[in-house]
């Protein structure tokens, strides 16, 4: 699996991670093109089903990037997202899919470097895990 390029979906909160991604861009910090960003108004808006669907559509890894503890623009959307991530991790585990393929990550809007580093680290982690055992069947 030398040429494996993982597909990563990152649900990024508009108030933190998405802005951090923007900052990474303006600082010319590169991050892997594997990471496809989906902007959400708050990670609290990311339903368990969205995470599952990402895997159904062929993602090898998914992460939800929300605000730092206590900094949620909507009070506690990030903590609730964290609980949902844990719930979906359990479903993945029951299905024999490595739960590490899904993660909750927290950062603030000013952390452009952290955004870029997280994207690298997560991509590398998934690269090591290899392709997700679930892949859409091509007809």
């Amino acid at each position: 699996m030398k040429n494996f390029e993982p597909e990563i979906v990152a649900f990024c909160c508009h108030y933190c991670a998405y802005t951090a991604a923007d900052m990474a861009g303006s600082k010319r910090l590169s991050y892997p093109p594997n990471v496809k960003i989906i902007r959400v108004p708050c990670t609290g808006k990311v339903d368990a089903l969205h995470m599952m669907r990402a895997f159904e559509k062929g993602a090898d890894g998914v992460y939800v990037a929300g605000c730092l503890e206590g900094d949620c623009h909507f009070k506690n959307g990030n903590t609730r997202a964290g609980q949902r991530v844990a719930y979906v991790q359990k479903i993945l585990e029951d299905l024999g899919i490595e739960p590490q393929r899904l993660e909750m990550i927290m950062m603030s809007a000013g952390m452009g470097e952290r955004f870029a580093r997280t994207a690298f680290e997560f991509t590398e982690k998934i690269r090591e895990l290899g392709p997700c055992p679930v892949k859409p069947i091509k007809k």
């Binding site: 599952m52 895997f55 159904e56 299905l95 055992p133 679930v134 069947i137």
Partner: peptide, 8 residues
């Protein structure tokens, strides 16, 4: 989840 399982 059931779809993921069958894909697997």
């Amino acid at each position: 989840a059931l779809r993921l399982n069958s894909m697997k």
